[in-house]
Amino acid sequence: MATAFKPKHQRLVLILLAFAALIAAGLLAAWALRNQASLFYVPVQFAADPPAPGRAVRLGGMVAEGSLKTQADGVTIRFAVSDGEAVVPVTYSGIVPDLFQEGSGVVAEGHLQPDGTFRADNLLAKHDESYVPRELEDMTAAQAKQTVAETFQ
């Protein structure tokens, strides 16, 4: 090297390079894991590549509006999980989490049955990132929408 290169600067460059390589390696690994590290499958993945019937998997998405029906026995419910592109019908018997409702997120643990229905052994609710006070609930839809629009603009 022609110019005098202080050891301090040499270390700075070396460590910056090593750190950049490390971050890149970590991000690549995380990116490669994107299918394996997900907690659940979404309905569109079920449609494209359905899991073998009986294999334990998790299915996640939104509980489709108007799809939630309680069966005659009073403990079995049927609903549809949707991701906006595909829909999977689900049956479940048992107590549902407090936050479980139509139009809200759900993660169902269970298996696919040969008839294409997903049989859930356990239901988990998923909350979205918006936090709205309960008072807004009593407003009409249009009022609430306006309040939310004013709040979040």
């Binding site: 995380a30 990116w31 894991l33 994107r34 590290a37 997900s38 907690l39 659940f40 499958y41 979404v42 996640g60 993660v107 988990l124 998923k126 909350h127 979205d128 990132e129």
Partner: peptide
């Protein structure tokens, strides 16, 4: 990156 039960930020 991943489907998660935790809400996004």
């Amino acid at each position: 990156w991943w489907y998660s039960i935790h809400q996004p930020p």
